[in-house]
Amino acid sequence: MTMPVIELREVSRRYDDGPPALHEVSLTVRPGEAVAILGPSGSGKSTLLNLIAGLDRPDTGTVTVDGVRVDGLGEAGSALYRRSKVGMVFQFFNLLDDLTVTDNVALPARLAGMARGEADRRAAELLELLGIDRYARVRPGRLSGGERQRVAVARALMNRPALLLADEPTGALDTAAGRDVSRLLGDLNAEGQTLVVVTHDLALARSCTTRTVRIADGRITHDVRSEAVASQGDASHIDASQVVR
């Protein structure tokens, strides 16, 4: 059987003297799955995301991503892990306004030691495939929210990560831009990108994922697989095969 991309075993995390943010959570995500993590504020879904991303450590249990024991990494190891194994997309984009779109996208590869010319070529490929190559020399502040989120997705895919994590990726977008980004994520998964989307938006979960995991009070209460998401077949569809390989 294929090795899981994500494997959490009996993971717990508590902050200060309050109730556990996560309590004995076990979760396995296989290559090519698209999983939505749903739950209200305070349910533990953000803690779960941070543990998978190596931004936090569990008090007990293990976190393994693409063969790496994330819970045992130090600060330098965690940074290297995020550059090589995980691409992250955030609600508010987290782009650097003093850099061009190309430089924002190429940054993870440059931090990983890739030569500038090679990184710029990879960035140009991603921008073209995501339909935003005309903004290559523009700074992010001149773009719409949907365009900035596409730049953020391109940056997350720069190092061909085993796992793409998206934290409320449509939360700061209007309805039309949100649908566009949802279709983009669905297209990427259809071509094999393993995807985990943390959200409170059931419509987003239904549109771009094939498995729903609900969390309440730090525990998984619901884990259901659905049928594959159908492509919308409109102008926003991309040939994602070149992006994820």
Rank of each mutant, 00 (worst) to 15 (best):
A36E: 11
L38R: 03
L38E: 08
P40H: 09
S43E: 10
G44P: 08
L49E: 06
L51N: 09
D56T: 05
P58H: 06
D59S: 11
V63M: 02
V65L: 14
D66V: 08
G67N: 13
V68A: 05
D71I: 08
D71W: 09
E75F: 08
L80N: 04
L80M: 03
V89E: 04
F92K: 05
F93K: 07
N94H: 15
N94R: 12
N94L: 13
L95R: 03
D97A: 15
L99S: 04
L99W: 09
T100G: 08
V101I: 06
T102W: 05
D103P: 05
N104R: 12
N104V: 13
L107I: 13
A109F: 14
R121Q: 15
A123Q: 04
A124G: 14
E125R: 14
E125H: 13
L129Y: 12
G131M: 14
I132D: 04
R137K: 13
V138A: 15
P140Q: 09
P140A: 14
P140L: 13
R142W: 09
L143A: 08
L143R: 05
S144W: 07
G145T: 10
G146A: 03
R148T: 00
V151D: 03
L163D: 03
T170L: 00
T170E: 04
T170K: 00
T175F: 08
T175E: 02
T175L: 07
